[in-house]
């Protein structure tokens, strides 16, 4: 796989310096949105200007989980649902690095849901990019915590009997300092969002609605990847800075996208270092405006 046959292009693709080109073409299906999101992630990493030797990508299991295998950075392909706690350890052992967790809706919010909410609560300084294709693609298209009510999947052949939850609302409620959602066609906005997320200190979350033509799209007769991403894009409406609770994905009305949360909060390490200076008044005296925020000059 990946061997170059035929005319070698005179010029190199601009993203090649960040790609393990000996492993391209990659595994994702024709029309899948993960490649596009991956392209936006690479652009954002380059735009961040952070030294590439100190940028790491951690991914879990599933289609998006394979992203770490294609990026020419320190990259870690962990067990299903455990990308975020692995990244937590990686972050705390090397505070100066920049860490991206790229995984799918099932990996991050189903099996990995407990770790997702706690990393957000602790405000661990990582950027989580969730490629939401509304099902478990790698294993052939089963229902996931994102699958819309009554949508067909291989494990909800009649219709999904469950309501999905709103990832952005979940992230915001858990304490994320940056939350945004775009479709895989909002290329420029998505790249800018990932760049902003990379600059944020703390837990930043970017959700991308992405076409899955082979599994989810086929089961629900949504056409090719091109049609599906167009459908998501046409159905989307940009409503920046609204309450994430309102940022619903209602396929009968519209898919709300945009940037919903962009706040400042001390990270786990900020608070860890603050506490261990042993200068704070003992609890409960130290609760007037949140000692952590005050010490970080955020009050």
């Amino acid at each position: 796989m990946g061997a170059k046959r035929g005319r070698k292009p005179a010029l190199r693709h601009p993203q090649d310096d960040l790609l393990r080109t000996d492993r391209i073409p990659h595994i994702w299906c024709s029309g899948c949105g993960i490649g596009t999101v991956f392209s936006c992630v690479l652009s954002a990493i380059k735009k961040s200007g952070h030294p590439l030797d100190d940028v790491a990508m951690v991914s879990g299991i599933g289609c998006t989980g394979r992203m770490a295998g294609y990026v020419k950075l320190d990259s870690y392909h962990t067990t299903h649902g455990r990308a975020i706690p692995f990244a937590t350890g990686l972050r705390l052992a090397r505070p100066q690095g920049k860490i991206l967790v790229c995984s799918g809706d099932g990996d991050l919010l189903a099996i990995g849901g407990n770790h997702f909410i706690h990393a957000a609560r602790r405000n661990i300084d990582i950027t989580v990019v969730c490629v939401n294709n509304f099902n478990y693609g790698m294993t052939g298209g089963q229902l996931a915590p994102s699958t819309p009510f009554n949508a067909r999947t291989t494990t909800s052949p009649i219709g999904c009997p469950e309501e999905p939850f709103n990832f952005c609302h979940m992230a915001a409620a858990s304490g994320a300092v940056y939350v945004a959602r775009w479709t895989a066609l909002h290329i420029r906005r998505l790249t800018d969002s990932i760049s902003e997320a990379l600059q944020k200190r703390g837990f930043s979350f970017v959700e991308v609605l992405s076409p899955c033509p082979t599994s989810f799209g086929r089961r629900n007769k949504m056409g090719k990847g091109l049609d599906i991403v167009k459908y998501y894009h046409d159905k989307s409406v940009i409503r920046n800075n609204i309450d994430p609770k309102e940022a619903t994905l209602d396929f009968s009305t519209n898919l709300v996208v945009g940037k919903f949360v962009d706040i400042e909060r001390p990270t786990f390490l900020d608070n860890y270092q603050l506490i261990n200076k042993r200068e704070l008044p003992a609890w409960p005296a130290s609760t007037d405006k949140g000692a952590g925020k005050k010490a970080a000059g955020l009050v």
């Binding site: 790609l19 073409p25 490649g35 392209s39 936006c40 290329i187």
Partner: peptide, 15 residues
């Protein structure tokens, strides 16, 4: 460069 950033397979770019 829109084709370049949109392409999921890094198969096209413009100069």
């Amino acid at each position: 460069h829109f084709c370049e950033v949109l392409c999921p397979d890094f198969a096209i770019f413009s100069v």
